[in-house]
Every structure is written in C-alpha cells, then in structure tokens.
Amino acid sequence: MAAGGFCKLPNGTVVVALNLPASTADGSLAVRVLVHAHNRARALTRLRNLGMRAVYLRGNAAPPTPDEITAVLHHPDGLIWRTAPDNGVTVTELWHPIRALLRHQEAARA
C-alpha cells in the first residue's frame, strides 16, 4: 500500500503526493510523485493517463510538505517526482519532471 495524501490550497486547487514503487533494471525504487490539479480525482486521472493505472489515494497519511507544494507549483507541468525518503531521512535530490521517470521505466524494460 502506497502512502499518500493531499493538501487543498486557498485557491481551491489541490496538491496530491503519492509514494509509488517504480521498477528499475537493478531492482525496485520507491518514488514520491507530486501532482497539482483542480481536485483529487483530476490529479489521479493525470497519473492514470500516463500509464500508472493502479494509483489510488486512500486517506491522508502522508500529505505534501510546504516545500513539496512550492516545488510542484513552480513546475510548468505541475507533475514531478524524486526518490522517496527511507526511514524519515531527508532527501537532497532535486525534483524531476514526470517525463524523466517514464523514460527511466522504459529503459529498464528494454
């Protein structure tokens, strides 16, 4: 079960954060995906349209942090990812556009 959550912004839009497993050539890697959309349903639809069919948001166990919200709001696509932190360790990795994750997954399949 992937942890996730959302935050409703003052303008009525939401930022959804999900921890998802991503398969790689050398095993598996957990990623944290952030989506900015008009509502939670549209955020999940954006991910499903990219091929992530089994994405669901149940509860609000891991909502986006203020830094994550700022990062996704400043990205032109409003859809970013980075490696998910393990055991509460602070991640210093920069955020990547979702296209980079999709290319990474296609290369792992080849």
Rank of each mutant, 00 (worst) to 15 (best):
M1I: 08
A2Q: 12
A2L: 10
G4R: 02
G4F: 04
F6Q: 08
C7F: 09
K8Y: 02
K8Q: 15
L9V: 04
L9P: 08
L9Y: 07
P10F: 03
P10V: 04
N11F: 05
G12E: 11
G12R: 11
T13K: 04
T13N: 07
V14H: 02
V14Q: 02
V15L: 02
V16N: 00
A17D: 05
A17L: 13
L18N: 02
N19T: 06
L20I: 06
P21K: 06
P21H: 14
A22P: 01
A22Q: 06
S23R: 15
S23M: 14
S23Y: 12
S23C: 11
T24W: 00
T24N: 03
A25T: 14
A25Y: 11
A25G: 12
D26K: 14
D26Y: 10
D26C: 12
G27T: 15
G27W: 11
S28I: 14
S28E: 15
S28F: 13
S28R: 10
L29T: 01
L29C: 00
A30T: 14
V31G: 05
L34P: 07
L34I: 12
V35T: 01
H38R: 10
H38E: 07
H38A: 12
H38V: 10
H38P: 05
R40G: 06
A41E: 15
A41F: 05
A41R: 12
T45A: 05
R46H: 03
L47R: 02
L47K: 00
R48Q: 07
R48Y: 03
R48S: 03
N49Q: 08
N49C: 06
L50N: 02
L50D: 00
G51I: 01
G51C: 04
G51R: 00
M52R: 01
V55D: 01
Y56D: 05
Y56S: 11
L57V: 07
L57A: 06
R58P: 00
G59D: 03
A62G: 04
P63H: 04
P63N: 11
P64V: 04
P64M: 02
P64K: 05
D67I: 10
D67W: 11
D67Y: 12
E68H: 11
I69M: 12
I69R: 09
A71Y: 05
V72N: 01
V72A: 00
V72F: 15
L73D: 07
H74M: 10
P76E: 10
D77I: 06
D77H: 08
L79A: 08
I80Q: 03
W81M: 01
W81V: 03
R82I: 13
R82Y: 07
T83P: 02
T83H: 04
T83W: 00
P85Q: 14
P85V: 11
D86W: 02
D86E: 06
N87M: 11
V89L: 15
T90S: 06
T90E: 09
T90Y: 10
V91D: 15
T92Y: 13
E93K: 08
L94G: 06
L94V: 08
L94T: 02
L94C: 09
W95E: 11
H96F: 09
P97Y: 09
I98A: 01
A100Y: 08
A100R: 10
A100D: 15
L101E: 01
L101V: 05
L102V: 05
R103N: 11
H104Q: 14
Q105W: 04
Q105R: 07
E106Q: 15
A107G: 07
A107W: 04
A108Y: 01
R109D: 04
R109M: 08
A110C: 09
A110L: 10
